[in-house]
């Protein structure tokens, strides 16, 4: 299976409850002492496209291999697409929508 590079969307209590009520809590993982996170996978080409679209974002090549520092509004949009599609496989649709 090809390597994927995550976008981490950190979830506050309000969103956690919303995801739980929508039956989507299983999409969440726990990290860093109980913090809830939606881990949205990107392929290498999706990662490169996202970094090109949002130059302020950074790929943490050294530690986590994840795409970080995306603006909150961008992550909110990805979050909304995950909820609407009830799936984490949203990055192609997201990139097309930009």
């Amino acid at each position: 299976m090809a390597e994927t590079f995550p976008i981490n969307i950190w979830i506050n209590e309000e969103r956690f409850n919303a995801l739980k009520n929508a039956g989507l809590a299983e999409l969440l993982k726990e990290e860093l002492a109980g913090m809830k996170v939606l881990i949205v996978p990107c392929t290498a080409s999706q990662r490169d496209k996202v970094l090109e679209l949002y130059p302020m974002a950074k790929f943490d090549a050294a530690t986590t291999k994840s795409i970080e520092l995306l603006p909150k509004a961008v992550k909110d949009k990805i979050y909304d697409m995950v909820v609407a599609k009830k799936s984490l496989e949203v990055m192609d649709d997201f990139i097309k929508s930009v």
Partner: peptide
Amino acid sequence: SGTKIRSI
């Protein structure tokens, strides 16, 4: 990861 914490 400092970057991850910044992201949070």
